[in-house]
Amino acid sequence: MEIHFWIIGCLFIALALSHIIFPRYFNWKQELSKLSLVNRQIMLVHSFFIALMVLLIGLLCLTSAHELITTTLGKRISLGLGVFWGARLLIQLVGYSPKLWKGRLFETGVHIVFTVFWTYISVVFIKTYLA
């Protein structure tokens, strides 16, 4: 099971680092300029802290896999992470309009990759809690 935590840790760190390109890729300078100052700053601050949390979860998985798998506290943390990422999977499936990805090759691929990613992560964390 520890290998799964290592894989998840590496994937989360990569995901956190990918947030660096979000502003340019999603054209945030122009897109967010339409928002009020408070909404623009909320978007930027929240995105930063999401990336930071994803990075920290990745580091936790890399450095504390054994504890997450074998200790009572670790299993409870794994349950919380499983529920959290399970909710993220649900949002992936029903929270985003299919208009964003259907009929678009790259976007459909990203949708599928993240659906598989959130499923894998949720299953590993929940299975860890139940073991």
Rank of each mutant, 00 (worst) to 15 (best):
M1A: 10
H4G: 11
H4N: 11
W6V: 12
I7H: 07
I8Q: 00
G9R: 02
C10G: 12
C10I: 13
L11G: 07
F12Q: 07
I13W: 05
L15C: 10
A16I: 03
P23T: 02
P23C: 00
Y25R: 12
Y25F: 07
F26D: 11
N27H: 08
W28C: 08
K29P: 01
E31L: 06
E31C: 08
K34N: 07
S36W: 08
L37C: 15
L37R: 12
N39W: 10
R40P: 03
I42H: 12
I42V: 09
M43E: 08
L44Q: 15
L44C: 09
V45T: 15
I50Y: 07
A51F: 05
M53V: 10
M53G: 15
V54G: 03
L55R: 00
I57W: 07
I57K: 14
L59C: 10
L59N: 08
L59W: 09
L60I: 07
H66L: 10
L68N: 04
I69L: 04
T70S: 13
T70L: 03
T71L: 00
T72Q: 15
L73V: 15
L73F: 12
G74C: 13
K75I: 04
R76W: 15
I77M: 05
S78D: 02
L79K: 09
L81I: 12
L81P: 03
V83Q: 07
F84S: 05
W85T: 08
A87I: 14
R88Y: 09
L89Q: 07
L90V: 15
I91G: 03
V94H: 01
G95V: 01
Y96P: 14
Y96H: 11
S97Q: 10
S97R: 01
P98G: 06
P98Q: 13
K99G: 01
K99A: 13
W101R: 09
W101G: 12
W101Y: 14
K102M: 15
K102T: 13
G103I: 04
G103F: 08
R104T: 06
R104K: 14
L105S: 13
F106H: 09
G109C: 02
G109S: 06
V110P: 12
V110A: 13
H111M: 06
V113F: 11
F114Y: 13
V116Q: 03
W118C: 04
I121R: 05
V123Q: 05
F125C: 05
I126D: 01
K127I: 10
T128L: 06
T128V: 07
